[in-house]
Simulated assay, not measured.
Amino acid sequence: MGTVPTPPLRSPSGSVDVRPDSRTTAPPALLMSGLGVDYGTHRAVRDVDLTVPTGAVVAIIGPNGSGKSTLLSTISGLARPTRGRLEVLGLQPRNARRRVAHVLQTTVANEAVPLTVRETVKMGCYGRLGPFRPLRAADRAAIDEAVERMRIGDLLDRQLLELSGGQRQRAYVAQALAQRADVILLDEPITGLDLVTQETITEVIDAERSRGATVVLTTHDVGTAQLADLVVLMATRVVASGPPAEVLTPPHLATAYGGHVHMLDDGTVVLDEAHHHDHRHHDQL
């Protein structure tokens, strides 16, 4: 499969200001201090200090095993911190779950429970209502809006098992949109997917930022990370965080990935890792 261009994430004004509004006392979207997560004797995440303001698009980038997915799972409450402090919208993660939507990188459709796309999107409302309460008019409107935004109206009666990877990903993102969450977590949301899905999801990320939601996504792609408001470069710890231009530098990338890093004129980053073939991270997917 050839490379396709990564659709840009744009702010409505053409520039980004992610500073907290001094006129409000609302807590940041995410606050981490000395955060660590262990799986047995394995330290997946260590010593993370990070503050994410409301309404920002944040890209977490790093090599495999760097703790990106673990960090998302801890924010959503799927994983528990081993030490340190984590607040989500000023709350403990377990108390903020209804306000957080998490789209996993690899969600396998269950063959024993053949859900349709319509049923999958509807489940996004359960975070607010619970699974047994009837939908309200506002919930039905949220479902319809999510379906339209993700361009899956023609797929509603099809089962997830019948869909392509891109179509299935759009259904899961629609489920998150139906939840109308304040924090949206997307684990590798567009990697390896078709261009329509990439464009649709990046448009939604822009729109959710404009709505005031905070979007946190993981990526392996330097070009994608460059289009976020804030970048967090991980190697189990935070190597660097801040605006893309300050974080995605050859020295920081070399620290995270190992070896030497070269930035080509076209924006391609070449990682020369000892005893490995070169890995190229394009500003295209």
Score class of each variant (00 low, 15 high):
25 T>I: 06
216 V>H: 06
119 E>Q: 15
245 A>F: 14
95 N>W: 00
108 V>Q: 15
272 D>S: 10
234 M>N: 05
54 T>M: 09
210 S>P: 07
71 L>E: 01
44 A>D: 02
259 G>F: 01
115 L>N: 12
282 H>Y: 14
126 Y>N: 14
52 V>G: 03
139 D>C: 04
247 V>P: 10
268 T>E: 03
227 L>T: 11
6 T>I: 15
248 L>R: 04
252 H>A: 12
105 Q>M: 00
127 G>K: 04
47 D>T: 10
236 T>F: 02
226 Q>Y: 04
228 A>W: 02
11 S>A: 15
214 T>F: 10
28 P>L: 08
256 A>T: 01
260 H>P: 06
61 I>Y: 03
258 G>Q: 01
243 P>L: 14
170 R>K: 05
243 P>G: 15
273 E>S: 10
111 E>S: 14
185 L>A: 06
128 R>D: 12
42 H>G: 06
82 T>N: 04
93 P>N: 00
274 A>V: 13
102 H>L: 08
189 P>Y: 02
255 T>R: 12
208 E>D: 09
139 D>Y: 00
261 V>A: 07
242 G>K: 10
27 P>N: 11
217 L>A: 12
270 V>G: 04
237 R>M: 08
66 S>A: 14
195 L>E: 11
253 L>K: 04
91 L>G: 00
237 R>Y: 09
72 L>E: 00
275 H>L: 09
95 N>R: 10
175 Q>V: 00
180 R>D: 15
85 R>I: 07
141 A>H: 14
62 G>C: 05
63 P>D: 03
19 R>S: 15
81 P>D: 02
38 D>S: 13
21 D>E: 12
137 A>M: 10
210 S>Y: 11
208 E>T: 06
139 D>N: 09
50 L>Y: 04
124 G>Q: 08
169 Q>P: 04
23 R>H: 12
63 P>V: 09
13 S>Q: 08
112 A>E: 15
173 V>K: 00
99 R>L: 08
12 P>L: 02
284 Q>S: 12
3 T>Y: 15
196 V>Y: 00
87 E>C: 02
53 P>T: 05
33 S>D: 13
14 G>I: 12
258 G>P: 04
212 G>C: 02
174 A>L: 03
